[in-house]
Design a binder for these strands. Structure first.
Lengths: 257, 257
DNA sequence: TAGTGGTCTAGACCACCCA
DNA sequence: GGGTGGTCTAGACCACTAA
């Protein structure tokens, strides 16, 4: 078996260095050709068979390398035709928004929250539309204020579909945010959200202890599990005290969005 | 070869239905066990060998199924120990932000932009820090206003690292936004951004034709290609006229962030 | 030592596409 | 019909872990 011999030869050559799997080596090689511009976007690259031959590896191994690059969005394969270099993905810029408690803790500060309201109510037109229920349907509603070192930084106005969390009203939210609870209970498969800047309502200003002229960052998010809307939340942040931030790498996998 | 016979049997049984690859069938099976709660988070699942036997498939095929589920973040494998169900990932919520022109066109409106300034300048302390250059280093600076149906909706204040785009000053931005140009030229591998709500400066208000008391959504983004900071941009949106939105599915691949 | 995953091979059959 | 990718097999050697 040629493979064993080669493996041994490599081993002794590089001495105790971690051996790079052959499919990984091929992946690296292909990426290099693309990055060097040797293989341009939309170019056809050598076939599996040909790559396997020139690298002295089996077709299955070459297949794995190429398949993984395909899964990673760098190549596209068409059976019966060939494999082609995919143009770099033009993708929307992505902002990752951490949960409020994570965000605050990451800053080295103390997070706490106060439950202002928790109730069963009839869905208003707006809420009904968000939760995809009939107007007047029974829903759960909760309002929290989140504090960073005793300073209010987020007003959380949450509407919950009772079908998704029948026991919502009887939960203890002293040690767990509703978001944590809902996420742990149901796998959210889709979110839809918007961010806007606006002035606070009188009530919002009062709860956040800010001026009526203080611009606020308002995030509205609808979360779905499969077809069902689980919850809709409105998060109001005083502009002075809160900035949403994020950092994203695009090294490997694309996908999402 | 048993495989051939089976394949044929299946074919005749289901008639011309698309045949499901055996690794895919195993993936489905494993996911079902997890979703049904039969296999709980942190449970050990049967070994490759065992799965291959009970499904009557080869170990390589079982390996592909399990490996893909591992890549998708549903399982974790430890060589010499076993394969385990991974708890559902707690991930930060993600907001996808489309480019301004895409966003506007998607709304069925007309996008246009006006170049206000394009110049070579010395980096201020803030800009130098953003671009990771020395204070006073030579950089490029451009200011655009973007319009949606002739109404200003975004003020783009962009700082460019000359090392990344030496020809930036001589480009024609009538048909292409600087963002399109830079993204097409260099593969951005990392971004860091923040969103905040604040009042506009006098200048910003003038360019956007808004009141000084109108809250604005301000997005600051630093883009890197490898180690080098390519560009830093500040995007100011009048709160009245602009909302950033996004929709994300989390069906398959996790990753990113 | 027995079991696990990690990797690899040298074949194979298939559907598909293009000339 | 010859080339392409898509899938599958029945073995194999390895490093690692746990009993």
């Amino acid at each position: 078996m040629q493979y064993i011999q080669l493996r041994e030869r490599v081993k002794s050559a590089v001495m105790f260095k971690a051996p790079v799997p052959r499919y990984a080596a091929l992946k690296t090689y292909v990426c290099e050709q693309i990055e060097k511009g040797k293989w341009q976007p939309n170019d056809k690259i050598p076939s599996e068979t040909s790559l396997a031959e020139t690298f002295g590896i089996s077709r299955m191994t070459a297949n794995r390398a190429i398949r993984e690059l395909t899964d990673e969005g760098r190549l596209i394969r068409i059976a019966g035709v060939g494999t082609f270099v995919l143009p770099p993905k033009v993708r929307g810029t992505i902002l990752e928004i951490r949960s409020i408690s994570e965000e605050i803790i990451a800053r080295g500060h103390i997070h706490s929250s106060r439950l202002l309201t928790i109730e069963k109510m009839e869905a208003s037109a707006f809420v009904a539309r968000s939760l995809e229920l009939e107007e007047g349907a029974e829903i759960f509603h909760a309002v929290f204020v989140h504090f960073e070192n005793d300073e209010p930084v987020q007003l959380e106005n949450r509407f919950v579909n009772p079908a998704a969390a029948p026991d919502f009203l009887s939960l203890d939210f002293t040690n767990r945010t509703p978001s944590d609870y809902l996420l742990g209970r149901l796998p959210v498969t889709e979110i839809e959200q918007t961010i806007e800047a606006r002035l606070p309502s009188k009530q919002e200003a009062a709860h956040l202890a800010i001026d009526l002229a203080e611009p606020c960052l308002v995030l509205e998010r609808t979360s779905r599990t499969g077809q069902m809307v689980v919850t809709h939340v409105r998060l109001v942040h005083p502009g002075k005290r809160m900035t949403l931030g994020g950092r994203n790498s695009f090294d490997n996998t694309p996908s999402i969005g």
